[in-house]
């Protein structure tokens, strides 16, 4: 979200020279991360080459998981599914839990931000609850829901909601006094104030909260699935550990990382569509 403001598409004609230059710049940008990954792989290879190494080398990891890599869509029933289905199941849980957290979190955040009574009443509670680790919620949600899937979704909900509430509240409280004065002079109605001032002014903060929230919910789902079992990338990792398929664990971790990054980019992308041009900073 640090892109400079002035990059607007200019209506200049297609310029081959410019295009070639920007392609070259992009390639140059790729060099450092590619080199870093290669060095990382070499170090990994060297460290695990010995005969009594506990972890597989990168080469062996790829050899052992080749089936999983080239065929992410197999489905042999039960939990024996390709990585795509494992990730897909986890993503569905995240989608449900995170959407609930976003709706409830934004609503609560606006309520708490606009009422100083609510703020003084509820903020201490939020500050305490937000520090609870995601997995600490799992036993209590299992006790409440008696079922694995709703419990996992609840854990995502309760993990993602705090940064959303806290950022939304902060956004409402940070509305410039000038805007509130304008609203008072113009005697804007409640709904006009909400849609024309409060909400647009708060949107950047809301997206910051959503971004932190989606990262936390992806962290939480992998951990929660390890405990609840069934299909899902978290349980896939746990299952692989129990069957001593260390290479499978490594490849699953890679998938978790990539999906987490994509989720984060997704929120940034949606934010870019929603945020008014003037507030992208």
């Amino acid at each position: 979200m640090t892109a400079p403001l002035d990059i607007r598409p200019t209506r200049s004609r297609f310029n081959l020279q410019k295009f070639a230059n920007s392609a070259l710049d992009a390639l140059k940008g790729l060099v450092p991360p590619v080199v870093a990954i290669l060095i990382f792989l070499v170090i990994w290879q060297v460290l695990t080459m010995g005969p009594d190494a506990n972890l597989p080398t990168p080469v062996r990891t790829v050899q052992e998981t080749w089936e999983l890599i080239i065929n992410p869509f197999f489905n042999y029933g039960g939990t024996d599914k390709g990585l795509f289905w494992q990730v897909w199941t986890s993503l569905q849980r995240v989608a449900l839990g995170f959407t609930l957290a976003a709706v409830v979190g934004i609503a609560l955040g606006i309520l708490v931000g606009t009422s100083s009574l609510m703020y003084s009443a509820l903020d201490p509670l939020f500050q305490i609850l937000r520090t609870v680790p995601p997995l600490a919620w799992l036993p209590i949600s299992l006790a409440a829901f008696q079922q694995a899937n709703p419990s996992a979704i609840f854990v995502i909900f309760i993990t993602a909601i705090w940064p959303i509430i806290i950022n939304t509240t902060e956004g409402v409280r940070q509305i410039p006094q000038d805007y509130n004065n304008v609203a008072r002079v113009l005697q804007l109605s409640k709904s006009e104030y909400f849609f024309k001032i409060l909400f647009p002014a708060t949107v950047p903060y809301i997206f910051t909260g959503l971004r932190i929230g989606i990262g936390l919910s992806w962290l939480a789902i992998v951990a929660a699935e390890m405990l609840i079992g069934g299909v899902g990338i978290g349980f896939f990792i746990w299952d692989a550990w129990n069957s001593s398929r260390i290479s499978d664990i490594i490849i699953a971790i890679l998938y978790v990382g990539i999906v987490g990054l994509l989720l984060d980019r997704l929120i940034v992308f949606v934010g870019g569509l929603v945020l008014p041009e003037e507030q992208k900073q």
Partner: peptide, 11 residues
Amino acid sequence: VVFQNYSLLPW
């Protein structure tokens, strides 16, 4: 009131 900091809504 015309405020010092313009106070137009940027959106």
